[in-house]
Amino acid sequence: MASAPNIFIDFLTALNVPHTDGYSTARFGSMSFNSLFGYSKLLAEYGVDSQGYELTDINEIRLLTPPYMARTKKGRFIIVLDIKGDTVTYQSEGSKLQTSVGTLMSACDGTVFLAFPTPEAAEPDYRQHRRNELLTEGKGWILCGIALALFAYLSITNGIYRHWSTILVMLIDIVGLWLTYMLVQKSHGVHTRAAERVCGVLEAGGCDSVLSTSAASFFGLFGWSEVGFAYFGVSLIALITSPSSWPWLAACNVCCLPFTFWSIWYQKFRAKAWCTLCVSVQASLWLLFFCYFGGGWLKEGFPPATGFWLLGACYAGALLLINRILPHINFQKSNNPDKSDPADI
C-alpha cells in the first residue's frame, strides 16, 4: 500500500535507490534528529553519502547535478530533478512541477543538499522488505478478487440482471458508495486528486466549506458522510443478497428524499457554498427513486412490513459500526493537492 508522499521516498526514487515505501517511510518518521543531519545519517544506512552546501553565489546552482534538494526561503525543501535550459523540473510533496531557473534561484536561500549514492546503494534488507511488500499487495489483490467474484455470483444468482431497474440501482449504489467514501475521507482530512476533481465541478473548495460547517454532522454524533456510506453499503449488500428486500429498499429510499431538500437548501442559503460530492449524493438518491418507481418496487414497499424495519435496523447497525471503527483508523492526512495556501508554507 503506497504511503503518503514524503521527501525521503521521493529523493530515493529520484536517485533510483532501491527501497520500499513502508520501511523507508517508517525510518524517515523515526529519525533520531528531524534535521538534515539525521537525514544524512539515514541516507548513510542506504549506502548514500551526502553533503550540504551553502551557495554564496546562487548562480552556482546550475553547476549541480540533479537530483538534489534545495531549501526555499520559507524553510521548506524541494527536490530539483532536472534542469534543461531555463526550465527546472522539481518535486514538492510528491507533485512534479516545472518553473524557470530564475524563479528557483530567487526562491531558494542558497542551501542545497546533495547525495552521492554508491552503485550498490539500497535500503537495508531490501530484498526481504520487497518480498514482504509484494506478498502484502498480493493478499490485497486476492481479497479484491474474492470480493468481486462473490459480488458477481450473488448478482447473477439473485437475478439483478433480469430487470433494468435493478441493474441501474446496483450501479447507482456503487457510485453512491464511492462518493460517500470520498466524503468520509475528506471529513477526516484526507484529500485525494479524484475527490478534488469532483469537488471542483460546481465550486472549487465548496466541499471543504460545507464539510467544515456544523451541519456536516447530525448533532455531532454522526457525520452525514458516514450515514451516506452506511446507506449505500447496506443497500448494495441487501440488493445483491436478498431479492425479497427490494421493495423495502425502495421504501427506505423514499424516507431519505426529504433529506435531499434540506441539504440543497442548506448549501444554497446557509453555507452559501456548493459541495459537489454532497449534491451528487442527493442526485443519486433521486436517481434511485426513479429506478425503484420505474421498476414497480415502490408499490410493493408500502405499507412497510417486518422486512422494512429489519432493513432499517441493518442501516442503523452499519452506521453505528462505522462510527465506532472510524476513530481507530489512521487516516493519512494530506493537504489538498490542488490548493496551495500561501499562508501555510
Binding site: 521548506r76 510533496e93 493537504n335 508554507i345
Partner: peptide, 13 residues
Amino acid sequence: HTVLTPELLAAMG
C-alpha cells in the same frame, strides 16, 4: 504539506 507550486516559489522570491 502544501505543494510549493511555481506561483508560490515566485511569490517567495
